[in-house]
Design a protein around this nucleic acid. Structure first.
Length: 211
DNA sequence: CTCCCGATAT
DNA sequence: ATATCAGGAG
């Protein structure tokens, strides 16, 4: 079976199990999504969702973030880790958005990549889950790990993995598949102690066959 | 490649 | 007590 067909089989099984996926990052608009994504770097979505209600009620819009005090934002987002840098990125982002983009997140992948705190993973989340435009594939730590275990790639570099997946996966599944792999990575295919015994993908999983 | 950092699993 | 989780910037 070729990799494209294999990924489609995995996709069907995952979709059947988890249903149609949407990003777990809670947000009311794309600006909030972007800030949540910055917070989610090296941090679980669950923890980000614990922080953002308070953050977004204290700062209602991009203008509020642009004029926020470093110390106050740091206190609110503290538990996300890397709080000093993330706070700087959020405030710098808000100021750039106010100055150059009328307070809105640009609907453009290349422009997103130039914004503070936003790399390929975050830009792909914003484009796909925010704007419904598919430019690339979200490769976070789960997509990276599962892509390796399921045999889609032997690369370790996220950019190379993304390029590999873009060759293998049908474009229709780029966004839902990466979300499904993230869900599956959290529930079954965990970094440590993967639940292979109860996993429903073991028939075609190269990682499982090695165990 | 190193630094940024708290939370949680072991 | 220590390892591992989770991306981006310089």
């Amino acid at each position: 079976m070729n990799l494209s067909k294999l990924s489609t089989e995995h996709y069907k099984a995952l979709l059947n199990h988890y249903g149609s996926p949407i990003t777990p990052l809670r947000h009311k608009n794309i600006e909030q999504l972007a800030i949540a994504v910055i917070l989610s770097a090296q941090c679980t979505d669950a923890r980000v969702n614990q922080i953002t209600p308070k953050l977004f009620s204290r700062y209602k819009n991009i203008g509020d973030f642009a004029r926020a005090s470093q110390e106050e934002v740091e206190k609110i987002i503290y538990s996300a880790g890397f709080y000093k840098m993330k706070t700087m990125h959020i405030i710098a982002l808000a100021r750039i958005l106010e100055k150059n983009y009328e307070g809105k997140i640009p609907d453009n992948f290349e422009a997103l990549l130039k914004l503070p705190g936003i790399g390929r993973k975050s830009a792909n989340v914003i484009m796909s889950s925010g704007f419904n435009k598919i430019c690339g594939i979200v490769v976070d730590t789960h997509v990276k790990r599962l892509s390796f275990r399921l045999g889609y790639t032997s690369n370790k570099n996220p950019d190379k993995i993304e390029a590999d997946l873009m060759q293998i996966w049908p474009k229709k599944i780029w966004n839902p598949m990466s979300l499904l792999l993230i869900f599956h990575g959290r529930k079954f295919c965990k970094a440590q102690n993967p639940r292979c015994e109860t996993c429903f993908l073991t028939e075609t999983c190269r990682f499982f066959k090695k165990c």
